[in-house]
């Protein structure tokens, strides 16, 4: 059992922060600035898997681990599409997910953005033209940005989001 008192008296209770990624920090600072200016200080993201191989989900999940911790940049992942500004779509759109995916999109309040993450969500990837999928996310709703990769790294996803927000700022 860890005694709470010894924790208080001991020096350096907290662990050393993991090595900082200068690249991620720089993207994060920029994202912070744009989110403050355009989105009233917070960007709410709803993640939607329409048929990925789960690697992309893992990378998106990783955005919340202590290395990236994107909440400090103003990005939060929300439970309901009704709370979301942005839909992050992964995987080719399967026939079995088509109706649920459209409902999720329709449940989001406008204005809304859609970002396709990973090769399959961008174009359908290796599944394009087969019986089970419709193709990329743009087959069922307008897509504002595509982030290719198999899967893209957390840093690539972040810089994709930054690019989108810069675009939104100009508009």
């Amino acid at each position: 059992m860890v005694n709470a008192l010894t924790c208080l008296l001991k020096k350096n209770v907290t662990e050393e922060a993991p090595a900082r990624d200068e690249e991620v920090e720089a993207i994060g600072r920029e994202i912070r600035t744009v989110i403050d200016a355009v989105f009233g200080r917070s960007l709410a993201i709803r993640e939607l898997d329409t048929g990925s191989d789960n690697a992309t989900e893992i990378e998106i999940n990783n955005l919340n681990n202590p290395f990236y911790d994107v909440e400090r940049f103003g990005i939060s992942f929300v439970a309901s599409p009704r709370h979301a500004d942005l839909l992050l779509v992964t995987g080719a759109v399967t026939h079995n997910m088509e109706i649920a995916a459209k409902k999720t999109y329709d449940a989001m309040p406008s204005p809304k953005f859609v970002v396709a993450v990973g090769d399959d969500a961008c174009t359908g990837g290796i599944f394009a033209g087969t019986y089970a999928v419709l193709g990329g996310a743009d087959k069922i709703f307008p897509v504002d940005l595509k982030i290719p990769g198999n899967p893209p790294t957390p840093a690539q996803i972040l810089s994709g989001l930054l690019a989108l927000m810069k675009k939104a700022r100009k508009e």
Binding site: G51, T130, A132, V133
Partner: peptide, 11 residues
């Protein structure tokens, strides 16, 4: 399950 059926075997 099977919402993500992508037709791997046929592919």
């Amino acid at each position: 399950m099977f919402y993500k059926h992508r037709g791997i075997e046929k592919l």
